[in-house]
Design a protein around this nucleic acid. Structure first.
Lengths: 118, 118
DNA sequence: TCATTTGTTTAGTGTTTACTAAACATGTGA
DNA sequence: TCACATGTTTAGTAAACACTAAACAAATGA
């Protein structure tokens, strides 16, 4: 299997566990509301990534970026999908335009939109 | 049920059927590779919208915009999701910024990106 | 040392997704 | 009129999804 997702979760959890023993696999699993055995299989890549709700709960517990963590599972949040679904022509065209551009160009758009008076 | 999707397909199909008999429910279903009974249930809203692949095939056969048709099913294409998944922080922030802006503002960004030298 | 905690493994389950197959009643054209 | 096409309805299903339950061996720590 590919397992970028599981490795990401494990790495993040072990990093936090170094400072805080409340980040054992079992305790994290309990807090996010899944069985320890399931989280184990997720981290080892023995099972595919869990649902969006569980990924979000994991990200929050571990203090990781939700968009990034979801992306490692090949997913986009319902929140972002809803933004596109409301205006599909507009955002469809925009995303296809930006898809081929380098990071710095996209970042410039992000900053202009954030800072500019639109 | 809500059935914006089914009505959209039926309206599009009947519009084309007015000029071309090849747009009967049965013939469309055959061309896109599903059973007539299934397409009937889709159009009446008796069953939820089909898979992305089937929606795409339907959109193409009927000459409808794929992003719009998918959106009526509450979906975003794999193609657009992949754009976000490749750079989730960048596009996550951008989409959240633009989510609250009126159409004309988003359109201005689209045009600037398309026409400008980035 | 021995009770506890840890991570792992195996087997099984309810739900949802995305349809097919087949029969049906109604309508149309030759 | 009657063969054929149309849209509809009912019942069923294979595969994927998203887990749980329970038992296990290894490490920890009092």
């Amino acid at each position: 299997m590919n397992n970028a997702f599981g490795l990401h979760i494990r790495r993040a959890r072990l990093a936090r566990r170094a400072e805080d023993k409340r980040f054992s696999l079992r305790q994290v699993a309990t807090r996010v509301g899944i069985q320890p055995g399931y989280l184990s299989r997720i981290e080892t890549g023995d099972t595919p990534p869990p649902s969006e709700a569980t990924i979000t709960a994991l990200s929050r517990d571990l203090g990781e970026n939700e968009d990034v963590t979801l992306a490692l599972a090949g997913k986009v949040s319902q929140e972002l999908r809803a933004v596109i679904v409301k205006r599909p022509e507009l955002f469809g065209e925009l995303l296809r335009q930006l898809a081929e551009m380098p990071d710095h160009a996209v970042l410039r758009v992000v900053r202009e939109v954030r800072d500019g008076e639109w």
